[in-house]
């Protein structure tokens, strides 16, 4: 039996009157890359935020590294968060800091490393994501793809055991998107971390995913190895992966 690093049990979450997750169950195994697909607004990003405790579920249990996190305080939660890297959809780089300061921030805050060592580590992570000579640029000077790479470098700086990617290719042109996909795959091989990638880009899902799960109406309707998902007979899965407006999923919803 493979080791489970994240377990979500019967999660319910709603915002105001809008129910987003209703009975979500999910297990993520050590070392795998799980891709969660689903329509915009179906609760994919919410699931990621629940895992790092940015929001709390209305009901249900979440265990990360074997520890129940739903009752942890903000300060206790930091222990877990230090072991997880998050790549945000908007990259979420701090606008007032340059690239180097952005990537170095977790090291400056959490370690006693001296400036030279920090500089070295930043350069190492930048070369890992394929960037060079951008240390002194500010986020506003970067293209979407570069921002994404810097966001990934920042997520990796603390050498996390889990990396969460929130729509890593959304809003990028197809060539940049493909480069980011390749980068995620390479990183998985090199670093052997556990990853969750949230996306609605099927090309990306097949490329990076060991397993793929479809989130629909607040539940995981199907979760399986990528090759089995391609052959699935579930009409919801077929409609989603073929990208058709005809089928059991209505267009207006979501």
């Amino acid at each position: 039996m493979k080791e489970v690093v994240i377990r979500m049990e019967n999660i319910y979450k709603s915002f105001g009157n809008k129910s987003v997750l209703s009975g979500l169950n999910l297990e993520v195994f050590k070392g795998e890359t799980l891709v969660i697909i689903g329509r915009s607004g179906c609760g994919k990003s919410v699931s990621l935020k629940l895992i790092i405790g940015l929001i709390r579920p209305d009901a249900g249990n979440i265990q990360v590294f074997g520890e129940e996190i739903t009752h942890l305080t903000e300060e206790e939660m930091e222990r877990i968060r230090k072991r997880i890297g998050v790549v945000f959809q908007s990259s979420a780089l701090l606008n007032s800091l340059n690239v180097e300061e952005n990537i170095a921030l977790p090291l400056v805050e959490h370690t006693q490393l001296d400036p030279e060592e920090i500089k070295e580590k930043v350069a190492e992570k930048l070369s890992l994501v394929g960037l060079k000579g951008v240390e002194k640029l500010y986020p506003d000077d970067l293209s979407g793809g570069m921002k994404k790479r810097v966001g990934i470098a920042r997520a990796l700086i603390m050498e996390p055991e889990i990396v969460l990617y929130d729509e890593p290719t959304t809003g990028l042109d197809p060539i940049t998107a493909s480069a980011i996909n390749t980068l995620i795959m390479e990183l998985e091989k090199k670093l052997n971390t556990t990853s969750i990638v949230v996306t609605h880009d099927m090309k990306s899902a097949y490329l990076v995913g060991d397993r793929i799960g479809l989130l629909y109406q607040g539940k995981m309707v199907e979760i399986d190895r990528a090759e089995n998902i391609k052959k699935s007979s579930n009409p919801l899965v077929i409609q989603f992966i073929t990208g058709s407006h005809e089928g059991p999923i209505p267009v207006e919803e979501g």
């Binding site: 903000e74 300060e75 968060r81 230090k82 997880i84 998050v86 780089l93 977790p106």
Partner: peptide, 16 residues
Amino acid sequence: MKISEEIDALRAMAIN
């Protein structure tokens, strides 16, 4: 910073 997820990103990096 709040609407561009920068504050969430800080919390996710265990920075209060």
